[in-house]
Design a protein around this nucleic acid. Structure first.
Length: 425
RNA sequence: GGGCAGAUGGCCGAGCGGUUAAAGGCGACAGACUGUAAAUCUGUUCUCUCACGAGUACGCAGGUUCGAACCCUGCUCUGCCCA
């Protein structure tokens, strides 16, 4: 299978410009994807573009990861119903640094290889450019009519909030990136999420008109969950690639909780398992879905890719302790089991209060598991709180020393999946 | 500069003098069911409170009224149209 065939089979191609496949077969091709520095860390939504670059590099082509230091200052109107707030420059700087660090982990930057990955930042070529230069040299090549026809712009023009000139120019700025990379790095291909199609074609158009060159592109579908929800959000919010922001355990849990239909799609996209292996897995899963073989494999592979062996090991260990034997009493967990649970929120609590006995509600608020007594009470009434795996039925329950595991721990559950280990000292 | 329309809880969106902490939907959280799924059903969803209750809230500032998200005045912002 060639690269495009492979990606097509994996469901990673949405739109593709004619000639792209031929170009990739013809020669080693340089290709780029841009990443917006909207946050300090990338999240799993950005994993798809990263994987595109990885596949590309594996196929012998040369990947360029572009960090949008300049475009991030403008704000992409794509998919946004209203004007965004601009990020301040120091926030941008911090975000760029964080993202660069992460990208470096996934691609091969070894310069002795001809297809070593390259990191670029579009701020480098925009910072010295004057407005007049830009509108004379670049703006002149693209008509406003062309720009307005783009979906992202059209929607905003029709909406009641309108679109600022700043965001309107976004596609030109991004288009210029493609042109610049074409000119300076012979980069002929741009990839991205399908929402980027409009911006990408502007760049290709610019290369055609301004340089008389030929450019190619393809996009991958934007992921949604089977229930229509946004991909990449868990109960905890965004799922980040940074272990500090989303622990390997929570990361692993995200994939483990994928719906069946999603798991079937995602395993193709997010793992490098070969076609036959995946087909076998899907078949096995259909025979016995309750085993969740697909989810387990998916979670394992992706966690390994992002967090490495050690992160995966910890994630699985914690998962097994917390979920494998749910009917087992909490007392069966050893001290090491409790201490070793990575990703579980650990809280220290005043031992004297437990010795003299404390009501659950005060306990839950003083440990900051709940911000207010009212909320804690409501959750107990809803049956959403367990302590040491026993559901708290009565809001007036008193916690005393006899509840402690190994005389110093309390395992608190908020809902089914949120665990807190309270260490009493 | 002129005219018109609009600004309601995380979002959408009703309300148009008292019964409105504000219908309905979405989202979110929890429970039951299950496979730590999906679908479904149930509960919760301004803040504080065990509770009774209290405090804030319908763009901002004033005013009319026993009483205003709803009426009046001024201001701010947004969209549309005209110059």
């Amino acid at each position: 299978m060639n690269l495009i065939e492979e990606l097509r089979w994996r469901g990673m191609i949405q739109d593709i410009m004619p000639g792209t496949e031929e170009q990739l077969l013809k020669e080693q091709t340089s290709a780029y994807i841009g990443f917006d520095p909207t946050a300090e860390s990338l999240h799993i939504g950005s994993l798809v573009p990263i994987l595109l670059l990885v596949h590309l590099q594996k196929a012998g082509h040369k990947p360029y990861a572009l960090v949008g230091g300049a475009t991030g200052m403008i704000g992409d109107p794509t998919g946004k119903s209203e004007e965004r707030n601009l990020l301040s420059e120091d926030v941008l700087q911090r975000n760029q640094d964080g993202i660069q660090k992460q990208l470096a982990k996934f691609l091969q930057f070894d310069e002795s290889k001809p297809n070593a990955a390259v990191m670029v930042n579009n701020y480098d070529w925009f910072k010295g450019m004057s407005f007049l230069d830009f509108i004379r040299d670049t703006g002149k090549h693209i008509t406003v009519n062309y720009m307005m026809a783009k979906d992202s712009v059209k929607k905003r023009i029709e909406s009641e909030n309108g679109i600022s000139f700043t965001e309107f120019t976004y596609q030109l700025i991004q288009g210029y990136d493609f042109y610049w990379l074409y000119k300076n790095h012979n980069c002929k291909l741009q990839m991205g999420g399908s929402d980027q199609w409009g911006n990408i074609t502007t760049g290709a158009e610019l290369i055609r008109r301004k340089a008389g060159g030929e450019a190619f592109a393809f996009t991958c579908p934007l992921l949604k969950k089977a229930d229509g929800g946004k991909f990449g959000k868990s109960e905890k919010g965004n799922v980040w690639l940074d272990a500090e922001k989303t622990s390997p355990y929570h990361f692993y849990q995200f994939w483990l909780n994928a719906a069946d239909d999603d798991a079937k799609k995602w395993i193709k996209i997010f793992t490098f398992l070969p076609k036959e292996a995946i087909e076998t897995l899907i078949q096995q899963h259909d025979e016995n879905a309750a085993q969740r073989l697909l989810q387990k494999t998916l979670a394992k592979e992706v966690t390994l890719f992002v967090h490495g062996e050690e992160g995966l090991k910890q994630a699985i260990e914690t998962t097994e302790k917390l979920f494998a034997n749910q009917s087992a009493p909490a007392e069966s967990l050893s001290e090491d089991d409790l201490e070793g649970m990575e990703g579980v929120v650990k809280i220290d609590y005043d031992g004297d209060k437990v010795k003299s006995g404390i009501d659950v509600i005060s306990f839950l608020t003083e440990t900051n598991i709940f911000p207010s007594r009212g909320e804690a009470k409501k959750m107990i009434q809803n049956g959403g709180i367990s302590i040491n795996r026993k559901k708290v039925e009565d809001a007036s329950l008193v916690i005393a020393s006899d509840k402690l595991l190994h005389s110093k721990y309390l395992l608190v559950q908020k809902g089914k999946k949120n665990y807190y280990l309270v260490k009493v000292g």
